[in-house]
């Protein structure tokens, strides 16, 4: 066996399900589908008057990587605006080798995905949905 991808930190992030579920009355929502694999993410956010996220909920019909990414994103999203989320995305992209530099927490957990290019979009799909929700 050559099992490098599903390391404990990724599995733990997915199982934590941080922010899983829908919000009762979100300020904005967005859905993103990956037509290649069929993964689907719906993100709800509540925004404060300054445009910062005060609450986030996600519904993921997708793989463990997508679930782990949504969970990780939800764990750091509150208090951030769109620009702040872009900085978090940079961390995720660093972890999977799309950007140079060291990834911060919790996205360093996604470093094993770097070698699996076909799975990069699984990690980035929640970011795409949140970007749409904040735009």
């Amino acid at each position: 066996m050559n099992d490098q991808l599903y390391q404990d930190r990724i599995v733990s992030l997915a199982k934590a399900k941080t922010g899983a579920g829908k919000l009762a009355s979100p300020t904005k929502s967005a859905r993103r589908d990956n037509p290649l694999c069929g993964d689907r993410v719906i993100i709800d956010v509540k925004l404060d008057d300054g445009g910062k996220i005060s609450e986030i909920g996600h519904q993921v019909r997708g793989c463990l990587l997508c679930q782990a990414s949504a969970s990780a994103l939800a764990s750091v999203a509150v208090g951030r605006n769109a620009a702040g989320i872009e900085k978090v995305r940079l961390d995720a992209e660093r972890a999977i080798g799309r950007e140079e530099g060291e990834a911060g927490e919790p996205f360093s957990a996604f470093a094993p995905v770097k070698a699996h290019k076909s799975r990069h979009e699984c990690v980035l799909l929640p970011f795409e949905a949140l970007k749409d929700a904040l735009s």
Binding site: M1, Y6, C37, G38, G62, C63, L64, L65, R119
Partner: peptide, 22 residues
């Protein structure tokens, strides 16, 4: 409890090629 893509990815680590998804 396990998404098909994760099953397929795990199988790849055993040298097994299958297809997962829609």
């Amino acid at each position: 409890g396990v998404h098909p893509h994760d099953v397929a990815q795990t199988l790849d680590s055993f040298g097994v090629a299958v297809r997962a998804g829609h």
